[in-house]
Amino acid sequence: MLLSIDTTAGTSVAVFDGQKELSFIDNADPFGHAENIGDCLTEALASAGKRIAEVTEVLVGRGPASYTGLRVGIAAAKTIAASLGVPLRGVMVLDALAYQQPGKVLVTSDAKRRELFAATYENGLRLDGPFLTTSEQLGQFQDFRHLAGASDARLNAKFFASTSQDLSDSSPIYLRSPDVTPSKGKKVSG
């Protein structure tokens, strides 16, 4: 039984038995990940009629996504997998969005600051990405059908059930370095 957790957009949790969806809870609040993660987990389990101990695998959305929310989901997924002693898998969420999309597709999701997270696919297989881009730069992907969206725990779980990709890496995908400029030196007064 798979417990799928995603905080790359809102907070969502799904419980799957193989391909079969047992429950899906989605809280769209784009800021309340730390608040919502616990209740989403317990509601998804309750709605599936399952106990946490029955979970045999944990899946988490690795991003790319805004940092703060992303980390909440990954942190929770790590400790759930650790408490249950079950494996943790990670999905690069643009892959889940591209799942079962025929032909050449450019998948993007909102990266805030007028930027986009993007990756290109052909018949669901990633050609390039993920990378950061802007809507002005999308012209170079004329050959690609553009698909914009956000993934969630359900899409990630469906992708997981069908892919042969190695998903053992569950580390976050930020695509941006931390927002800082090193200190300029010692001028403090004035």
Binding site: I37, G38, T68, R71, A76, I80, A82, L84
Partner: peptide
């Protein structure tokens, strides 16, 4: 720091749910 606290909170809630313990 809010962003820093949230990592601990996410991890703690995962432990609480994962081991079915109060938080």
């Amino acid at each position: 720091l809010a962003g820093a606290l949230m990592v601990g909170i996410g991890a703690a809630k995962g432990l609480a749910v994962g081991s079915d313990k109060p938080i």
